[in-house]
Each structure stands twice: as C-alpha cells, then as structure tokens.
C-alpha cells in the first residue's frame, strides 16, 4: 500500500494526479483535523488509536500498511506546512511509548514491523538555503523516528513544476 499526504487544493491535486491507483490512499486536508494535545492517550488509553475523533485517528494503522509514504507540502521555515505537521503529530500511535537507542540517540520503539520509503516533495517560491538544509535535516530525522527504509527529498520553486515528478 502507498499513501500520499498532501496540503494541495483538491483541484490542483486532481490535475497533478488525475488517476489514483487502487493501492494508493490519499490523505488531504478536510479542514477538520484536530491538533495532537500530547495526552498520550494513543499509547496508554487506546493503544494504537488516537483518542481525538475527527477522521484522522487511525493514522498509526494506516502507516503500518504502507511500503511507501509520499508527502507533498509547502516548505515553511524549513518545516512542513501546518496540516502536514498536524498529520505527523497525530501519527505517533504508529510507534510505541517505550524507548530504544539508535546510533546513540533515544527513539521510540516500533509497534509494527513494516518499513516504508519516505518521499517528501517540498514546494515554495523563495526558499533560502538555510530553509532547504533545515527541511532536509527534518526529513532525515523523521525517517529515523518512523523507521523508514529510505528518505528522498525534492524541492520545487513552483508548484506546477511538481506535476511531472508526481504524475
């Protein structure tokens, strides 16, 4: 299974990817996503499921079924856009609360055994070199925390120039 998480207007997304294959799930901004409030309910109340019910509570299970996760996001200050950040914040039930060490750093243990290729397409017109470097570091760090098998990062000055890459 592949998952695309994007912050594009639906018309723009449909023009970029007119036909979504049956093995691809698409996660977009419905305008109703609630922020993670750090309650840890997804770890110690309803393990694996977020306690906030807004249609985004099953992100952990969704990620467990993926071998590819693709993010399309505006790059802001070297970070993802707020919706994508929100989705990632709500994805911690994919992991366990318990800790492990990876390369001398503490990280959460994995709940599931799958790994996915983590690809991020950042768009933004006037990104600075510092923002690009921060974004690359962010994706690499996220890849470690989510046990991705590989991370790929692409930047586009114009949203339209993503079309060929995504099609």
């Amino acid at each position: 299974m592949k998952m695309i998480i994007h912050d594009l207007d639906s018309a723009v997304f449909n023009s970029f990817i007119p036909h979504v294959a049956s093995d691809i799930s698409v996660l977009s901004d419905t305008g109703h996503i609630k922020p993670c409030i750090g309650c840890f309910g997804c770890w110690i109340k309803t393990p694996g499921i977020c306690v906030r019910k807004d249609g985004y509570e099953n992100l952990g299970k969704m990620l467990s079924e993926c071998d590819e996760v693709t993010i399309i996001s505006k790059c802001i200050y070297g970070s993802y856009s707020p919706f994508i950040r929100n989705v990632l914040d709500r994805s911690i039930p994919y992991l366990l609360p318990y800790f492990t060490s990876k390369n001398g750093e503490t990280h959460h243990q994995r709940r599931y055994n799958n790994s996915f290729v983590f690809t991020v397409h950042f768009y933004g017109e006037d990104l600075t070199e510092a923002e690009r470097e921060t974004a690359k570091e962010l994706v690499a760090a996220n890849g470690i925390n989510f046990y991705s098998s590989k991370e790929k990062v692409f930047f586009y000055d114009r949203m339209e120039s993503m079309k060929g890459a995504l099609g």
Binding site: P35, C36, G38, I76, S79, Y80, P82, F83, R85, N86, L88, D89, S91, I92, L138, A141, N142, N145
Partner: peptide
C-alpha cells in the same frame, strides 16, 4: 513534536 514545533504553534 516529531522533531519540530507542535502544529498548533506552527
């Protein structure tokens, strides 16, 4: 939060 700022603060 996941190596960055919490989304609400962002």
């Amino acid at each position: 939060y996941i190596d960055a700022l919490p989304s609400h603060l962002f």
